[in-house]
Structures are given as C-alpha cells and as structure tokens.
Design a protein around this nucleic acid. Structure first.
Lengths: 300, 300
DNA sequence: TCCTTTTATACTCGAAGTGAGTATATCCGG
DNA sequence: CCGGATATACTCACTTCGAGTATAAAAGGA
C-alpha cells in the first residue's frame, strides 16, 4: 500500500436555465451527477473535464470553475484500501445548446431542493422542515442555543431574512438532523429527491457557489442566448436565486454596470409591448470586477 | 498503469501577522510551502491537514479552508507515470502562537511579492514590472489590445485603480510574460523571491483569497490576539490588504458590524493617548454574513 | 509647569447608492 | 377603440460611504 496513492475522479455540476427553470445534468435518470476517472494525458484538470464533457454530452461548455475536492472516509474505493478523491467542477451551459425540458439527463434543481425556490413565496415544505429542525435543536440541551442560532440564521427564522446564498448550510444542517436519506440513519425522513452517495451535497455546493457568484461576476450571461430581453435576463437570475426581484431596480442595476448593449431589434413574443433585444458586451467583461453589487430584492 | 490512480499531496498556506507584517510558514529556508502526502486513516482532508500541521509546527490552527486542487502535467510524479494531485489549503494562525520575525520558518509575504505592498505608496519595483509588461503587450500585435486591457486592469494603469484582490491575476500575467523564474524560460528576469515548483503561485492564490475574504467575513480576528486596540486591528487589515485605510471610516465600519466589544481595559503602550482594548464577540460571528462591506480606502 | 507631539476618539457633511413606488408607452385581441 | 398585458421611464426618501475636521488624553522636553 503506497502512501499518498488514491483514485482520482472528476464530478461535474453542469447547469443550464431553460424555460425559467434551472437544471442540472444528471446520469442514472437523475440519481447521480456525471463523473468519471481522471485519466492521464490531459494537460490539466480543467482541460480534462472540458474534453470529457464534450464527449459525453455533445454540448459546448462555456464557463467552468473548480468547486471543491472531497475525500471523506466513506468515499473509500470499494475494492481496495485506497481512497477516492473527487474533484468537483461547476460548469455553465447556454440555454440554446441545452436539451428541452422533457429530454432525459437534465433535471430541475428544485426537484432535489424544493425548499430553495422562493419565487412563489415561502414554500410550504419549509414548515415541515423547520418543524423537524426544531426537534433536533431541542434534542440536545447542551448545544441547544448554538443549534438554534444556526437554524434561525440558515432558514430565516426569528427575524432573520431568508438568504438564498445559504443553500449549502441548509442542506448540511438537514443532513446533521437526519432529514435527508443520504445521512444513512434508518429513521431518516427525506425532503426533496435524494441522490447517489454525496452527489446531492455536491449539487448544493454548486448551487450555492453560483448564487453567490452572480452577484459580483457577470456569469449569468453564460446561460443566456446571444440576444435576450431584460425580462428574460431578470427571470434567469430569479430562477437561479430562487427569488423574485424588483423590476425597475434590476434594470437600473444592469445598465449602470454597462455590461449589455441594444441589438437594435425587438421582439413582440412576450405578449405586451415589444421588448428591446440586448446582447452581452464580450469585450468588456473579461476583466470586470463588479464590486459589491447586491441583488435588488422585492418584498414578496 | 491504472486509470485514475494518482499521488495525493496536501500543501498548506499558513499565515500569521506579526509586527504589522503578514507572514507565511515555509520549509527549506523559505523556498517551499510545507507539504506532505495525504495518508489514509484521516477522517477527511481537513482533519488530515489539521493533525499534520499540529505535528509539524506545534501551533494550533484556527481557521482552515480549502484553496484549490492542482494537477497539471508538469506536476507529474518523477519516478512513475502517475500524476501528483496537490490539494492546497489556507490556514490562519494567531499572532501570539506564531514565532517572532527572526525565527526561521516564517517569511514575509512581500519578500515574494514586493509589488503587492502599497502601504507606503506605489512600490518603485512596479515601474520596472509594468515597463516589461508593456514589452510583452507589444510583442504580439494580434493580441495587443486584449493584453493591454488585462495589464491595465490588473496593475491599475490607464485610469484604473489598484485593486488589491487581483494578486493572483498579476502573478499569472507576470508568469505569462516571463517575469518570474518559475516560468522556466532561460531569459526570464525575476521579480521578488521565487519558490520551488508552483509554490509561489499557490501562495498568491492564498493571499488573493484572504484579501477577498476579509471584506465579507470576519476572519481577521483569527489572526488577532485575545484583546487588541482598534489601531492594531486596522494595521493588521492594512498588512493583509497591502493598503492604508481611512481611520475614522474604518472605525465606523467595525462598530456598525457589532463584531467586537470593549474589555473595559486600556493600554498606553502605543505612545499617545491610551487606547481601549477590545475583544471579538465569538458568540455572534459564527453565522455572520457581512454583506458587501468594502474596505474604507484612503486616497494616498 | 506648560507646551508640543503623538495617538485615540468623536462628529459633520455632501455625494452616491439603494429600496420602493408611480407614471407612461406600445403591443395584442376582442 | 378599449382593456389587458408587458415594457420602459421617472421620482423620492433613506442609508451608506468617502472625506475631512475637531476634541481628548497620555508622554516628554523646555
């Protein structure tokens, strides 16, 4: 047994937004994230994954960034004493290139995390979740206060506002409390659709990262078609954040960043007054550091 | 040759601030970052590193977060066809626990990146660097415009302000342009002290991450002693950011976050009027998400 | 002793940014 | 041609932020 030798694996969280629904690419009918061994011959991890995704999906991959490297004991390779190291990536795929809603492979984010979509108000499922979280808080008197603070903060209770960035913390709290079947306890109740091994946690990591990133980097445009209306752009952001935004302020935010420009054309497919079409200003944004731009939320 | 099998290695960027100077723990008299094989038997990477750092340094490790996982071709293990995967971590060590300035093992950040310290104004070395960067920009006419934009943005030229968060981009540009010996080209001029393999790049990654993080998470306190004055706190932040801050606004920022409280004592070691001592409010901050707090910079 | 230096702490003010609401424009379909 | 729907434009109060100024309390030398 060589010291420091391990199986290396790549796992991808590939996301697209189609029809106002954020989706993730899956295998095994939605039970697992696509993954594969890290083979020699690639110039780098990044290049390896890009090539491999191209082969597997046929979709060109736009934005790609490393998420996290996992190597917990329970991820040990079955047929040896060697450990498996999983290096996860977040990739964004353009809407046009992604298959339609019905096609297999792509599943909605909120199938796995129904409590994360607040576009239609606070989801009803949250009442059940926070009720059980309270049981968990009360279960261990010594840590009660600390647990209560964590739960209130993560789920927006006791005066705290719902924070869409905390999806990973919420999943981890639910895992600790035994509210997801991946936790393995036999008595576990499950909320949302579960996944193979720790893939749902990796998905949560990807979602949280993307939700945080859209606030200070113009990555949304990696998910948009070549030309789009401001409403389309807003609905895409809303889909990712799981929140509704204040329309006038969203528009003000967008054009003061000077990230987009009019194409000169308009579309009347939206029902009412025709909307101007915009395109992303590629030249500018490679080096754009949007400082502290928070999303313009709308109260309910 | 087994597919997906690789050597796994941990690399740590351990930082402390002593005497207004940010330092990093090194081995080989400052030529390399501490690293070691990832052995079986640890519960997780995090636990593995924590234990290993404790053994190696004797210092308790406060904050710890994963930085990045590297696996480029040039990092291939010498005596086999197998690749080495390096998982890097950023760790923060409290000032009191860290050894003094003279002791071996700890070296100042700005020994490796002298152009990153702007506390005394724009460093003179930057003139030499940007001069050579301009040569690189001009060297390939086809990519001139693009390169010019990248350089101007990263180094704060042509109207752009110096942005302390872009340390990694600056190092990578200098690498591309052959201004650091690690790039391997024989004609390379070197700025700053170089390190073994890609360790200096990993250090740059850690510095950039920490500089970004202190703006929205109260990690500075992981580097402070139990009680401290506001000026001490400010000088620690200034050391990390490589910038001077506007004192009144820094204080306003700090106390509107409600992260610290007075101990009731004061110290007159500072020379002038005695300063109140403060301590960090541990109970609060575990779940504190400081939204968009930018640093209060001072002009010049 | 008092005056200067040094550092700490407190207050003010205008510019810019943000949350929230209202008003006008232009299409479609009856 | 009128109502419904969507797009776009403007306003206003409030908060935050950059920048500067003023006062307080020690040390040390003339």
């Amino acid at each position: 047994m060589t010291i420091g030798l391990a199986h290396a694996e790549l796992i991808a969280v590939l996301s697209a937004v189609t029809g106002d629904e954020p989706r993730v690419m899956t295998v095994r009918s939605g039970d697992a994230l696509p993954s594969g061994p890290f083979e020699l011959g690639h110039r780098s991890l990044q290049a390896g994954l890009r090539e491999w995704v191209g082969d597997q999906t046929g979709h060109p991959l736009g934005y790609l960034e490393q998420l996290y490297t996992f190597a917990d004991r329970d991820r040990t390779h079955e047929d040896a004493g060697e450990r498996t190291i999983s290096i996860s990536y977040l990739g964004l795929v353009r809407e046009q290139a992604a298959p339609g809603a019905g096609k297999p492979g792509w599943h909605g984010w909120y199938e796995y995390f129904p409590w994360e979509d607040h576009r239609g108000g606070r989801p009803e499922i949250l009442a059940g979740i926070t009720g059980r979280m309270q049981d968990w808080v009360a279960a261990e008197p010594a840590r009660r206060e600390h647990r209560q603070r964590r739960v209130d903060f993560a789920f927006g209770l006791d005066g705290a506002a719902w924070n869409e960035d905390l999806g990973l913390q919420r999943y981890e709290l639910m895992y600790e409390a035994g509210l997801v079947t991946e936790a393995g306890s036999p008595s576990a109740k499950n909320f949302g659709r579960s996944m193979f091994a720790d893939h749902r946690r990796i998905l949560a990591t990807g979602i949280a990262r993307l939700r945080a990133k859209i606030k200070y980097r113009p990555v949304v445009f990696e998910l948009m078609p070549e030309s789009f209306t401001l409403s389309q752009l807003q609905r895409t952001v809303e889909a990712l954040a799981g929140l509704t935004l204040h329309k006038p302020n969203f528009r003000r935010l967008i054009d003061q960043q000077e990230l987009i420009e009019e194409t000169g054309e308009a579309t009347s497919e939206t029902g009412g007054r025709p909307a101007k079409l915009f395109r992303y200003r590629h030249a500018v944004l490679e080096e754009r550091a949007l400082s502290g731009s928070k999303l313009p939320l709308s109260r309910n």
